[in-house]
Amino acid sequence: MSVNRFIGRCMITLIMLTFFTSLGFSAEGDPARGKALFIGNISFEEGGAPCLACHGIAGVGFAGHSNYGPDLTAVHENFGAEGVAGILQSLPFPSMEAIYINRPLTEAEQLDLAAYFSQTSQLSVVPSNAILALQVSCLVIAILGITFLIGLRRMRATRQPLIDNQRNLVNKGGLQ
């Protein structure tokens, strides 16, 4: 049926159009700027929280192991470009609502972030909790070590050692 075919073609064109426009948009986003926005080097125009505050990502060192929200390294792979764009536009999660409802991401920011996400998919996430734990333990030990050093200056008990010394001498039979 020609009508059906026509409609079908139209649909395909529409989809193609959407696809190409989306491709065209993503080509406009700047991944470097997206990264800067993600880590908070550049603040969002409306003042929303930088993504790294809660979301982990590969490629920014140890700091990329945020774990409040889900890791976004593979977000592009999992949701596709459209999915990502949709999410960035509305950020429809209850815990994020309060933060972004009055401070949405601008369109340019959305594009930059999307561009950044499309790059991070290739990176692999390294599990870091062990390293984090190790480093924190080292710091704790260091702080306690400093405390110990401060403690060296403390005055010791005075009377008891005098008595103990004498007892030791008597026990050894040295003195009566």
Binding site: G151, R153, R154, M155, A157, T158, R159, Q160
Partner: peptide, 11 residues
């Protein structure tokens, strides 16, 4: 927060 030169009751 901790006076290092304070004798305690034991002294």
């Amino acid at each position: 927060f901790h006076n290092p030169d304070l004798p305690t009751m034991d002294d």
